[in-house]
Simulated assay, not measured.
Amino acid sequence: MNLSSHFRAYSLRGDGPSGEPIDPILGVDHAWISAPQFPAHPHAGFSAVSYLFLDSETGIDNRDSLGNHNIIQPGGLHWTAAGRGVVHEEFPVEKGKTVHTLQIFVNLSEERQQNAPFALSLEPSDVPVVDGSGTKVRVPLGTFGGAKSPLETPTELILLDIALEDGAELCVPIIPGNTAFVMPIHGTLAVNGQIFEHAKFAVPAFPEQQTVHEVILSAPKGNAKAVLFSGSPLRQPVYWQGPMAMASTAALASAIAAYQHGEFGTLDSPIMTTTHL
């Protein structure tokens, strides 16, 4: 766990040369942020995605070197596809209030890593919600229960924000061949019958070699909350350096050189409007 007076986060990173077992995701930070923590920084080769939980006390002021500038509200999502390079910055709108967020790093296919960067934004009111017996599922990305997120993203990904009342159970089908994992957010959660306490921040993962057709979540000891991720693995190498990740060492070296030569742009660019869906 990363910890400071204004920032604490549980961090998950893919292991192995291709990011298994969470490919196409490279990493997730489940974070609480109450003051600016990170100066403007570059990204290249993947998508930086911010999802704010509904219990966030304030939003995130988001801007990038493409000229996008918007507020990510509690319950909203912002997707920055860095492609060949972008400079990005986010910080809480109201000082002293806490943002409760997921910072998600989603890999791009090798051919998309050289594409021009762009951004997508999803307002809280546009996130589909599926109500069940003692369950409520928000669908910021992908599909579930007949609901489909309006975002069309460069890497296909399902993200479900799941609330379970005491004793409730939810079955989530998994597309054959997809990876899937669950992040407990609070409470006691059972995943396919195995108990996970949030205090341990266990992250049950389902490797590619294990055939998974469904994930059954339940709340055996009071209300619980979890996030489920599922996606089609890219199965490509990942070479990291700081906030850049490419599919080859040559591409990574090229991205670093491009940033050093100012080719990612700056945050002083004229402000334009982010694409909203």
Rank of each mutant, 00 (worst) to 15 (best):
T179L: 11
S149F: 04
Q113V: 14
D161S: 11
D131Y: 10
G167W: 07
K136E: 15
A163G: 06
S109D: 13
H186G: 02
Q194E: 11
V106G: 01
P173N: 01
E110Y: 00
A119E: 10
D131T: 09
T135R: 06
S149G: 08
I104N: 08
L159I: 04
T143M: 09
F144R: 12
V172Y: 08
S149C: 07
A163M: 09
E123F: 06
V106L: 10
N115P: 01
T101G: 09
T155R: 02
Q103I: 08
S125M: 06
G145N: 07
F144W: 09
F181W: 10
F105I: 01
Q113D: 11
C171E: 09
P154L: 14
I175P: 05
T153D: 10
A147I: 02
S133L: 15
P128W: 00
E152K: 13
T98N: 02
V127W: 00
E111Y: 08
P124H: 13
M183G: 04
S133H: 13
G134K: 09
V127D: 04
G132H: 06
L157R: 06
P124C: 14
F118R: 01
L141H: 05
V139S: 14
S121D: 15
S125F: 02
L159W: 10
E110Q: 07
D131C: 06
K148G: 07
T143C: 05
V106A: 12
T98Q: 07
L189C: 03
S109V: 05
E165G: 04
G132C: 10
L120K: 14
P150W: 03
H100S: 03
L189D: 00
S149A: 08
G193R: 07
E156M: 07
S149H: 01
Q103L: 10
K148E: 15
H186E: 09
L189E: 05
L102E: 07
K136C: 14
E152Q: 10
G145D: 11
F181C: 08
G145T: 10
S149Q: 12
P124D: 13
A116W: 15
R138V: 12
I174C: 03
I158D: 06
N107E: 02
L159E: 09
R112S: 08
G187V: 12
E111H: 14
N178W: 09
L164Q: 10
E123N: 15
A190T: 00
R112F: 07
T143G: 02
V130N: 04
L157V: 02
R112Q: 14
E165T: 00
M183R: 12
P154D: 15
N115H: 14
V127L: 03
T155H: 02
G142F: 07
Q113L: 06
R112K: 15
R138P: 05
G146Q: 01
F181E: 11
E123W: 04
